[in-house]
Design a protein around this nucleic acid. Structure first.
Lengths: 341, 341
DNA sequence: TAGAATTATAAAAACGTTTTTATAAAAAGG
DNA sequence: CCTTTTTATAAAAACGTTTTTATAATTCTA
C-alpha cells in the first residue's frame, strides 16, 4: 500500500479532487459542512500533501538555498544558525549546499529547487553565471561580495572601514610598526581590510612596508607558521602590533608570539576581526572588530524573502563593524628609545 | 519569456519529448547522432531540467534532511560540515531545518521533500510519529538516540567506553583515588559514563567510594559548587584526579580546585568529555575524550544513503571516543608517602 | 522476399498537486 | 413559472518531467 494521495481522500470522502484541495487550502468557496467532513477524512487517513506535486504546480518550493564552501567555525555556524532560524520564522526551509562544484550549484539554482539563494562570496560565481541567473530572474543575495548588478542583493561587512578603524585604534595606542596578517587574497573581505589598514597608515604618514603584510589564510595554523617564519627571517623588524585578518588568525599570531617569548599585549598588541565566540575566552581576551554575523544572516534572509514575495529590488547593505577592546592590545610601552635594540 | 522546458528543446531540435529525455539521461537506445544533436540544442538553449517535475515523476529528490534544534557551537558545525560534504560527495544535497515545530518536521518528512532524514535526539520525536514514519517507510537515522525500532538507524557516541577509557587513562598515570562528577542522572550519556568509570575502577581493584561520585549537572556552576562543598566536607579524602561528566564540568572543577590553592595538573588531574572548542583554549588546556563528531556525521549519511539505495536495514552504530591528552592531566607525582598529610 | 526481429523515434500516460472551466442545483427576479 | 444569478461541486487541464506503449523503418531469417 503506497502513500495516500489527494485522490484517495477524495474517493473516501465521496467528493472530487478539487473539493479536497479547496478544503485543505481553506478556500472559502466551500460549504462549511463539506469542508469539515473532508478535513476529518483527510486527518483520519493521515493524509500529508506531497510537496513535489505541490511545488511543480505552484512553482514555489518555500525553500531557500545557502551555497557555500564551508560551514565550519564560529563565523559560519553563527551565520547558518541565524539564517535557519529566520527561515523557520518566515515559513521557509533552508537548503545548505557545501560544495565548490559549479554544476551542482547552477543546476540547483536554475532547476528551481529553491525560491531564492544566498551565496557566500568565496564561491566566486562568475559573471556569466550571474547574468544567467539574472535572465532567469533568480532571486539572490550575496554575502560579503559587492555586485554592481542591480537585480541582485548583497549584505556585506564593511571591511574597509573595519580595517581602517582597527588600524587607527592601534595608532592611537602609540604603535607605529603595525603588521597586517592577510587572509586569502582573492577574498573581498581580506583585501578590503588590508586596504583600510594601508589607508590608515598613509593618513598618519606611517611606514608602509611590504614585509609587514603576512599571509595567514584566515587560519590559526597558517598564521602561526607565517608569524613564526616572519620572526625568524626578520628579527630586526619586530612590529609594535599585529592586525590579524580575523580572530582565528589573531589566535594563531598570539600563539606564535608567545612561543617566541613575547607577551601579548605587554610587548606586542594584537587585534583581530569578527569577534567569534572564542574571542572572549582566549587568554588574553581578544580585542577585535565585531562583525555582526547573526544580524548579517537575518538581514540577508529578510531581504531575500522580500525580493521573492514583494518583488523588491536587490539592495546593497553594508554592516558597520564595532571595535571591542579587550585584553590583547594596550598602549605602547615606550622603552628607552636609545638604549634598547 | 519563461523558462525553457524540455518541450521547447524538443520543438527546437525537431524531435519528441521522450527523445530529449533519453538524450539527457544518456539512455543508450538513441542514435548517437540524434543524441549529440539534441544535447547541442539543449546546451545552446541553456536548458536546465526543472527538478520539481523530475522529482514528482521519479519520486526521488536526491536530498537528505537534517532536523535539529540548533546548529550553533562546535558540536553542530562539525556535524553539519561533515554531513554536508558527505552528501555532496554522494550526489545529495542537505536540507537543514532548525526548528522544534513538529508540524514543520513531519510535513517535510512525510511530504517527501527529502529521500531520507537525520534527526538529532534532542527533538525527541515521539513514538506515534516514529510509527507513522515506519508505516510510510521513511528512511531515518537518529543521532545520539537509541531506538529499539529495527527499521530506523542510529549513530551514537559510546559513553560507556568513553568513561571506561578515560578512567583507565587516569589509572595508567598512577592515580588511585579518582572521583567522578556526574551530569544529570536521567540522561543516558551521564549514566553510561559513570558506569564505564565504575567498571574501570573495579577491573583495577580500586576503591569504589560513594563519596567520590559528585553531582555537577553537566554545568560549570553546579560543578564548582559541588567540588567546593566536597573539599569542605572531606578534606581528608582529597582525590588524585577528577573525571568530570563533560568539559564544562571539568572547567568548573578546575576553577574550584584553583580557588582552594590546588594546582591542576601538578596536584590533581582533571579530565572531561566532548572536547568542546573552549577546551583547548582554557588554562590549562583540557584533557578530554573527544566525541568523533565528523565521523558520526559521515557514518550517519553513509548509512542513510545505503538504506535508501540498497534498501539496507536500519543499524545501530556506536562510535568510540578518542582521548585527547592536553595539559589538565599528568603522571601522579609520588610524594613521600609517609611524610605528607 | 514475406514475415519476424530489431532499431529508432514518437505518442501517450503518469506522478500529485492547483487552478481553470464546466455543470448542476438552488435561489432570486419579474 | 420561466429565466437569470448565485452557490456548491465536479471535471478537466496544467505544471515538467520520466516511463511505458505504440509506430514506423530497417535488418535479419529461412
Amino acid at each position: 500500500m503506497g502513500k495516500v494521495t489527494i485522490k484517495d481522500v477524495a474517493r473516501e470522502a465521496g467528493v472530487s479532487i478539487s473539493t479536497v484541495s479547496n478544503a485543505l487550502n481553506n478556500v472559502d468557496v466551500l460549504n462549511p459542512e463539506t469542508k469539515s467532513h473532508v478535513l476529518n477524512v483527510a486527518k483520519r487517513m493521515n493524509y500529508v500533501p506531497n510537496l513535489n506535486g505541490k511545488q511543480l504546480k505552484t512553482g514555489k518550493t518555500k525553500m531557500l538555498g545557502f551555497f557555500t564552501t564551508s560551514v565550519s567555525g564560529p563565523y559560519f555556524y553563527t551565520l547558518v544558525e541565524s539564517m535557519a532560524r529566520e527561515c523557520d520564522r518566515l515559513g521557509y526551509g533552508l537548503n545548505v549546499f557545501v560544495t565548490r562544484d559549479k554544476q551542482v550549484i547552477m543546476s540547483n539554482i536554475l532547476g528551481r529547487r529553491v525560491d531564492g539563494v544566498i551565496i557566500y562570496e568565496e564561491l566566486r560565481i562568475d559573471d556569466e553565471d550571474v547574468s544567467m541567473m539574472m535572465k532567469e530572474k533568480i532571486k539572490a543575495v550575496f554575502l560579503d561580495r559587492f555586485l554592481e548588478n542591480e537585480t541582485m542583493g548583497s549584505v556585506i561587512f564593511d571591511s574597509f572601514v573595519a580595517g581602517y578603524e582597527a588600524t587607527k585604534y592601534l595608532i592611537s595606542l602609540g604603535h607605529k610598526k603595525i603588521a597586517y596578517i592577510s587572509g586569502v587574497d582573492t577574498m573581498f573581505d581580506s583585501v578590503q581590510r588590508r586596504d583600510g589598514y594601508l589607508e590608515a597608515l598613509r593618513e598618519h604618514q606611517l611606514l608602509v612596508d611590504e614585509d609587514y603584510v603576512l599571509q595567514g589564510y584566515f587560519e590559526e595554523e597558517g598564521t602561526y607558521n607565517a608569524v613564526k617564519s616572519f620572526l625568524h627571517m626578520h628579527p630586526d623588524k619586530l612590529p609594535d602590533a599585529f592586525l590579524a585578518g580575523n580572530d582565528l588568525s589573531a589566535i594563531g599570531c598570539i600563539r606564535a608570539l608567545k612561543s617566541h617569548g613575547f607577551d601579548v599585549p605587554a610587548d606586542i598588541s594584537v587585534v583581530g576581526f569578527d569577534d567569534i565566540d572564542i574571542a572572549q575566552y582566549f587568554t588574553p581576551p581578544l580585542t577585535t572588530v565585531r562583525n555582526q554575523i547573526a544580524r548579517q544572516g537575518v538581514l540577508a534572509i529578510d531581504h531575500l524573502v522580500r525580493m521573492i514575495q514583494k518583488k523588491e529590488q536587490g539592495k546593497k547593505q553594508k554592516l558597520a563593524g564595532e571595535l571591542v577592546v579587550r585584553g590583547s592590545s594596550q598602549v605602547k610601552i615606550q622603552r628607552n628609545d636609545l638604549g634598547q635594540e
